[in-house]
Computed example of a mutant assay.
Amino acid sequence: MAWAFLVGLLTLPVAEVLVWIRVADAIGGLATVGLTVLAILAGSALLRGGGLGLALDLRARLERGEPPGPIVFDGICIAFAGFLLMLPGFISDGLALLLLLPPVRALLLRAVVVSPGPASPSDPTIIEGEYEILSPEPDPNQPPDHKRLEP
Rank of each mutant, 00 (worst) to 15 (best):
L35D: 04
K147F: 15
G65Q: 10
P143I: 08
L46I: 04
E150W: 08
V23K: 09
G8H: 07
E150G: 10
P103S: 02
L149P: 14
V7A: 12
G94A: 04
A119K: 14
I76P: 06
V113R: 03
P151N: 11
P70L: 11
P140C: 15
A60F: 14
I127V: 14
G51E: 12
L108G: 06
E128H: 02
M1V: 11
Y131K: 11
P138V: 02
R61D: 12
A111Q: 02
R61H: 03
I76A: 13
R48M: 13
I76G: 06
A4I: 12
R148E: 15
T36E: 09
L100H: 04
R22V: 07
I91T: 00
P103D: 00
P103Y: 03
S122T: 07
P121R: 00
L30Y: 15
A26I: 04
D93R: 01
D25E: 11
I76C: 13
C77I: 02
T32M: 11
D57V: 00
R48Y: 12
P88S: 00
W20E: 14
P13W: 02
S92C: 09
A24Y: 09
A119P: 15
D25V: 06
L85T: 01
L12R: 05
A106Q: 08
I133A: 12
D123G: 11
P67F: 04
V114G: 15
R48D: 11
L30E: 15
L47T: 04
L149E: 08
G43D: 10
A24I: 10
P138C: 04
L62G: 02
V113A: 13
L6C: 04
E66L: 14
F80W: 05
F83T: 02
T11P: 10
L18R: 00
L107T: 09
R64W: 08
Q142H: 09
L99G: 03
G34D: 12
L41N: 07
D57K: 06
D123H: 12
A81W: 00
A96D: 04
L46M: 02
L46K: 07
F5E: 10
H146I: 12
P136R: 08
L47E: 00
L149A: 14
V112L: 00
M1Y: 07
D145I: 10
A2P: 10
I126D: 05
R148M: 06
P121N: 06
I91C: 01
P151W: 13
G8P: 02
G53L: 02
L62I: 06
E150H: 10
G75V: 11
L30T: 15
L98M: 09
I78M: 09
A4E: 14
G34Y: 03
D139Y: 01
A26G: 03
L10H: 02
A106M: 11
G29L: 15
V37F: 05
I127F: 06
A15G: 10
L101V: 07
V7G: 05
P124W: 08
F83I: 12
G49F: 09
D25C: 00
F73Y: 04
G28Y: 00
I27V: 03
L18P: 01
L84A: 08
L85V: 05
V7M: 15
P88L: 03
G75M: 02
A96I: 01
V113W: 08
I76K: 09
